[in-house]
């Protein structure tokens, strides 16, 4: 009996303080919705796939994606547009114009950031530097050691984007280039462990830079491969990364994959296949009513 009375007291006290506390929290934090649009492995597919294409008939194309993004920007206040690498290689546009058209159009479309995929090195490091220096958007790479490399000054280890009252930290995780890229095409790039470097940057962004949310643009590939660190490994073994927008494995994730991270918190992984036939869209609500957002989630996922 005594126990029950104590319990009731505790509950009522807790509720009182909770209500007080909650109301003060709400006044500090208003609800913000961020719409994240993403692509990966577009591979120079400027035009839609031909009408007789077996898998993607008349799908994709930069001018369509531009229209779609424009429309979403009209409807939503806070939109991010991101790419997870392998912008280059795959159509004659790249063979003849060396990526300048891809970079120009992505700038025009208002990409906020991209990371570097292995095919970005296909014309060599020098040519990649030339293209990056023309870009209207930042290239982010967190886990490559770039001492003595021109890419060090042309790329960023992370980037912070403010949307309303929300600070979003963006990091870039690059794949091990050995075996994928001809050694002549890259010099003075060391691949560092993306779990360690990713976590280091993400915790710095959250703790020191006050970021609310960390997005990793990753070209590591989605799932398990022996001897390789991939998106699922990064998700499981970190605590500060919230969302991984992946690439390289050309997987179509119709809905983002939820993974429990090291702190038992849900992390999501998205990937949009390849060739620009799909645009990934992820909506995040900050400080929304828990029940409501969870219901919305169930309806969507």
């Amino acid at each position: 009996m005594g126990n029950r009375r104590d319990f009731l007291k505790t509950v009522s006290l807790g509720t009182a303080i909770g209500t007080l506390g909650l109301s003060s929290c709400i006044t500090n934090n208003r609800i913000t919705k961020i719409t994240i649009l993403h692509t990966n492995d577009v591979h120079s597919h400027i035009d839609p796939f031909p009408a007789n294409h077996r898998k993607f008939p008349n799908q994709g194309g930069f001018a369509r994606r531009a229209a779609l993004v424009k429309q979403i920007r009209k409807e939503e206040e806070h939109v991010l547009l991101l790419d997870a690498g392998d912008i280059f290689q795959g159509t004659p546009y790249f063979n003849f114009y060396k990526g300048e058209l891809e970079i120009k159009l992505m700038g025009d479309m208002g990409y906020d950031a991209a990371t570097i995929g292995n095919h970005e090195f296909d014309n060599g490091e020098h040519e990649l530097c030339k293209q990056i220096s023309k870009a209207d958007f930042p290239f982010i790479i967190t886990n490559y050691g770039l001492d003595g490399n021109k890419l060090k000054t042309l790329t960023h280890p992370y980037k912070i984007i403010q949307k309303g009252n929300i600070r979003i930290g963006i990091i870039g995780l690059g794949i091990k280039l050995e075996g994928l890229v001809s050694p002549n095409n890259y010099k003075n790039i060391t691949y560092n462990n993306p779990i360690i470097e990713g976590e280091k940057a993400a915790s710095f962004l959250k703790e020191k830079e006050n970021c609310d949310y960390i997005i990793a643009l990753s070209h590591l590939g989605y799932d398990l491969k022996e001897g390789m660190i991939r998106d699922i490994d990064v998700a499981k073994n970190t605590t500060n990364i919230d969302l991984i927008l992946g690439g390289h494995s050309h997987i179509f994730l119709d809905t983002p994959t939820a993974i429990k991270n090291k702190a038992d918190k849900r992390v999501y992984i998205g990937q949009t296949g390849w060739g620009g036939v799909k645009l990934g869209r992820i909506d995040i609500v900050f400080n929304g009513d828990k029940k409501e957002t969870e219901l919305a989630l169930q309806a969507h996922l």
């Binding site: 008349n58 369509r64 229209a67 959250k206 119709d254 983002p256 949009t272 799909k278 996922l301």
Partner: peptide
């Protein structure tokens, strides 16, 4: 930090129904 919830995630097909910019 502000509490984040992912409320929806999907892939949108860029097909002929979307007019070019």
């Amino acid at each position: 930090n502000n509490e984040a919830t992912l409320v929806s995630g999907k892939l949108i097909t860029t097909d002929h129904l979307i007019a070019n910019d």
